[in-house]
């Protein structure tokens, strides 16, 4: 691992906290988490802070990711893509307001040395249940 790259270090911390959040490897006696959360979504930035790193998914670019794995020796990470959806559950453009993030099975491998900023988002956004639409009739 390139110890000079702080993003690599930050990602390691994020992975550790994501594991704690998911309750994996932990045996709680008193904590009962009603909503399952296993993701700390985030965005990555290179030098230009206005433009996040984006990957194409089904014809639309997404800047939201979940950290799956880190290869510490080479400072690479496997990221799965998260897509932003609106209140009706339809995918939205990254520039628009979104309501929730949905997981996908698509992954990318990135060289963390290329990034300098990570912007974590609220874990509640991932698989957030869609609103109830009333009146139903």
């Amino acid at each position: 691992m390139n110890k000079n790259n702080s993003i690599c270090f930050e990602m390691k911390v994020l992975l550790k906290e994501q594991k704690i959040l998911s309750g994996r490897d932990m045996e709680f006696q008193f904590i009962c988490m009603s909503k399952e959360k296993d993701t700390i979504p985030f965005m990555l930035f290179q030098n230009d802070l206005n433009k996040p790193f984006m990957v194409n998914y089904k014809g639309m670019a997404t800047p939201y990711f979940r950290l799956e794995k880190i290869e510490e020796e080479i400072c690479c990470a496997v990221l799965s893509l998260l897509i932003a959806v609106d209140m009706d559950g339809s995918p939205v453009d990254p520039d628009d307001d979104f309501y929730a993030l949905r997981k996908t099975k698509s992954c990318v491998i990135v060289d963390l040395n290329c990034f300098c900023v990570i912007n974590p988002l609220d874990p509640e956004l991932v698989n957030r249940p869609l609103p109830v639409i009333e009146p139903k009739k």
Binding site: M87, P129, P131, V132, I133, E134, P135
Partner: peptide, 10 residues
């Protein structure tokens, strides 16, 4: 009235 929809966070 049927065109009006309320979006509620449960």
């Amino acid at each position: 009235a049927s065109k009006i929809k309320f979006y509620l966070e449960p």
